[in-house]
């Protein structure tokens, strides 16, 4: 057995053990999806104080953005890439790959990213969730060949909060650091950039980067195939993202600040779950 396949086996075994271990816990601990309670406003009854409490509740987030000028120029560059390059590309892609088929492809790559969610959950000691993710992976792979979200029919395996390595870093108390706009990928932070690198290395599509074991499997694929896999992975996830960006841009008076606020709030909420 090659070292690579043995590391796969170890991963699978580890997953199976976690499923078994968490099964008992899952019986009692249904994951609460209730949102965090909104902060209560000041107890004072005077209208001025109540109004001030309202204003405070909606005070802008403090986002460290020392590279704002540079970030804004990358943001402008991304805008051109999204509207002039990726939107037409996605239209062409959607013309060839119809939305139902694309959903299946997106599901396939999402299912493939199971190791990222597993590692992120284990790193946060969210073992019960790691077990549910493993169950979901097995059901989707066996029952839906990765293309269909069969696991959503199983109540215990539906609606599992998504985890990634950036969130694990956040749960360890690592602060965001400066806000960064990454070329093409968009708004992030120093911490989440580190997380992304981790995600890429852990995901099977990125196993090319780590030198575990024998790389015959990857090396045996022609570069055309490797490129096709990467491009399909990216394209299948793009349509909703580009739609969201275009909506936000239409609504915003300062799209840069709108996206910065939304990115940070969204990430913090995901990390807290």
């Amino acid at each position: 057995m090659s070292p690579r396949s043995s590391s796969h086996l170890a991963l699978l075994l580890c997953g199976a053990l976690l499923t078994a271990a968490s099964h008992a816990r899952a019986q009692t601990g249904a994951t609460a999806l209730t949102p965090a309670p909104a902060p209560m406003s000041a107890s004072s009854s005077s209208p001025g104080a109540a109004e001030q409490a309202d204003f405070d509740e909606y005070a802008p987030l403090r986002v460290s953005d020392p590279f704002e000028g540079f970030n804004r120029s990358i943001f402008k560059f991304n805008d051109v890439v999204y509207t002039r390059v990726l939107s037409p590309a996605v239209k062409g892609y959607e013309f060839v790959v119809r939305p139902p088929v694309n959903r299946a492809i997106a599901n396939f790559f999402d299912n493939l990213r199971y190791p990222v969610r597993l590692v992120a959950n284990v790193a946060q000691l969210k073992l019960e969730r790691a077990g549910r993710e493993t169950g979901k992976f097995v059901v989707n792979t066996v029952g839906g060949l990765g293309f269909f979200r069969t696991a959503e029919q199983v109540p215990a395996l539906a609606k599992i909060p998504r985890e990634d390595i950036g969130q694990a870093f956040g749960s360890w108390g690592i602060p965001h650091g400066p806000y960064l706009v990454l070329p093409v990928l968009g708004g992030s932070s120093l911490r989440d950039l580190g997380g992304r690198v981790g995600d890429t290395v852990v995901a099977p599509t990125g196993w090319d980067y780590i030198n575990v074991g024998n790389r015959e499997w990857m090396d045996s694929l022609a570069w055309q195939w490797r490129t096709t896999i990467t491009v399909t992975d990216v394209m299948s996830g793009l349509p909703p993202t580009l739609q969201l960006y275009s909506d936000m841009k239409k609504a915003a008076v300062d799209p840069y600040l709108s996206v910065r606020d939304a990115t940070r709030r969204y990430r913090d909420r995901e990390t807290a779950r």
């Binding site: 909606y58 600040l257 709108s258 606020d261 939304a262 709030r265």
Partner: peptide
């Protein structure tokens, strides 16, 4: 929406202006 408040998002844009 997904943890992003309409008011808070516009406040972040309006404040500097």
């Amino acid at each position: 929406a997904e943890g992003v408040s309409l008011i808070a998002n516009y406040r972040a844009q309006f404040d500097p202006i």
